[in-house]
Design a binder for these strands. Structure first.
Lengths: 189, 189
DNA sequence: TTGTCGCTAGTACGATCGTTCTAGGAATGG
DNA sequence: CCATTCCTAGAACGATCGTACTAGCGACAA
């Protein structure tokens, strides 16, 4: 009577594959058919699992933010107490500036930019893109909330700004030098 | 014999109007027809002046970068010698964080993100998006080239990172507080 | 076994896309 | 005036878009 049960794992597989596709082929002009071809399924299959294209995009960027944050937040949490923020920032930067992460962060900033121009559609992304890291970086500090917030804001902004520079210019020497200087000032607190 | 002369001003008018349109309606899925409707011309007119859509996009982002840089570089140049960099950075930040500039910088970051995923098409944008400011900020300093480059890189990255935060969260108090702290450290050099 | 429902695919529809073709007024140099 | 060239518009092309509809297959509960 109840019929065949829903296979949630199947949707997760397709979503991960879709994120990989977006990482390689860009996010701006994603459409059902090319994604379906790359994944070896029909467009109908994607529609069935994601509903509308808009919903698939939301799912993709949700998964993307999840990936990006999970991979770095692990490094944030496992730090000794003293100078925890500086160590966390260094760990995040080391991982983020790894060339192997380039494609994923290019996609991240592409989504970020698009979200800024469609705040309605990407509301959750915009809400959490800063807040998730803020929470983690504030927890890593022992100072009062005001200065902790101020420092966390600066750390997030500087790392992202440097990453934008690195991805745009590929000038590793210059950007790494600036990053090292910033991280050094962070440890002098 | 020579016929009617080319009207370059007409193209500039259309380009400025197209940038305005992109500022309001987004950059990701721009197409001839909606732009033409908004500008009160036919799509053929746009094709005539810009060639292909790709060329129009390049023209738009070139003009956009020109606008964004010109408006702020003026503030950079007209500073007294002492603490020129700090004053320049403060001027740039004051203008960039003005809510009235929000739409333009949203477009700027949307283009930036798209360019990161299509480096071939937007090569010139990526080349100049950092280099233009770098040159101006290095010239504003009297220290050796190495530290001047390092500082300029950090100033650009931090300002852009803070701007990303401000545009995403709208949390003016927190971001302005962090910006003030950063600019203060800049003046202590 | 049988009825139910998830999963997949194929097809088709209307809309919109970028671009080309055709052609008529406007403005300029000879 | 005339020839030439720019500017603009309208129509049409094939391609691709998102999505709905139909239907067959497979897995599960009763």
């Amino acid at each position: 009577m109840t019929g065949r049960p829903v296979n949630h794992q199947r949707r997760a597989e397709l979503l991960d594959a879709a994120v990989d596709y977006a990482t390689e082929h860009g996010f701006a002009d994603l459409s059902w058919r090319p994604v379906a071809r790359a994944l070896g399924v029909s467009t109908t299959t994607l529609v069935h699992h994601f509903g509308t294209k808009e919903q698939m995009l939301e799912a993709i960027l949700g998964r993307l933010r999840e990936r990006a944050f999970a991979a770095t937040s692990a490094a944030v949490g496992d730090q000794p107490d003293l100078a925890a923020l500086a160590a966390a920032a260094r760990a995040v930067w080391t991982r983020a500036s790894d060339p192997r992460q380039g494609a994923e962060f290019r996609l991240f900033f592409a989504v970020y930019g698009q979200a800024l121009q469609s705040p309605g559609q990407f509301a959750e992304f915009l809400d959490r893109v800063v807040a998730d890291w803020m929470r983690a970086l504030i927890d890593a500090q022992k100072t009062d909330r005001t200065t902790a917030t101020r420092t966390a804001t600066l750390v997030i902004a500087t790392i992202r700004g440097l990453l934008l520079d690195l991805l745009a210019t590929g000038d590793d020497d210059r950007v790494q030098d600036a990053a090292a200087a910033f991280l050094a000032t962070l440890e002098e607190r």
